[in-house]
C-alpha cells in the first residue's frame, strides 16, 4: 500500500480520484487544491506518489511538477490531463512526469498508471 497525495483545484475531481485510489488499496494521505499546496504537502508528507492537475489556477501543475522534482529528483508525479493538452503533456514528460491520468477518469486506467509508476523503481520511499 502506497501513500499518495492528490492535488486538483476541483473538489469533485479530488473526491473522485481519492475514491478510486482508495478503492484500489492505496492510501490518500493528503489532498491539495493548487501548486503551492502540492509542494508543501509533498515536503510534509513525503508520499510515494503525487497526482497533479495540469491546469490549475495560480501555480499550475507544470510549475508544481518542476518544483517537486527539483526538491526531490526521485519524486513520482502523475499528471492529470485532458484531451487537447498534448503540448502540456509533452512539457510534463520533459520535466520528468512519471505518468498521466486522463480526464474524464477511468478507474482501470488510473490504477494501471499508478501501479506502473510505483513499480518503476523499487526501494524508494518509506511505504
Amino acid at each position: 500500500m502506497a501513500h499518495i497525495v492528490v492535488v486538483d483545484d476541483a473538489s469533485f475531481m479530488r473526491g473522485s480520484l481519492k475514491f478510486i485510489i482508495e478503492s484500489s488499496g492505496h492510501e490518500v494521505v493528503g489532498t491539495g487544491k493548487n501548486g503551492t499546496e502540492a509542494l508543501e504537502l509533498y515536503k510534509k508528507l513525503k508520499p510515494d506518489l503525487i497526482t497533479l492537475d495540469i491546469l490549475m489556477k495560480g501555480i499550475d501543475g507544470l510549475a508544481a511538477l518542476k518544483a517537486i522534482r527539483e526538491y526531490d529528483p526521485e519524486a513520482k508525479v502523475i499528471m492529470v490531463t485532458a484531451l487537447g493538452q498534448e503540448e502540456k503533456q509533452r512539457q510534463a514528460a520533459e520535466l520528468g512526469a512519471a505518468g498521466y491520468i486522463r480526464k474524464p477518469f477511468k478507474q482501470s486506467e488510473i490504477i494501471d498508471e499508478i501501479e506502473k509508476a510505483l513499480g518503476e523503481k523499487v526501494g524508494t520511499g518509506d511505504a
Binding site: 483545484d9 476541483a10 469533485f12 475531481m13 473522485s16 491546469l55 485532458a82 480526464k103 474524464p104
Partner: peptide
Amino acid sequence: HTLKSSSSM
C-alpha cells in the same frame, strides 16, 4: 474545461 470533464464523469 474542468466543467466538461466533471460533467462527463
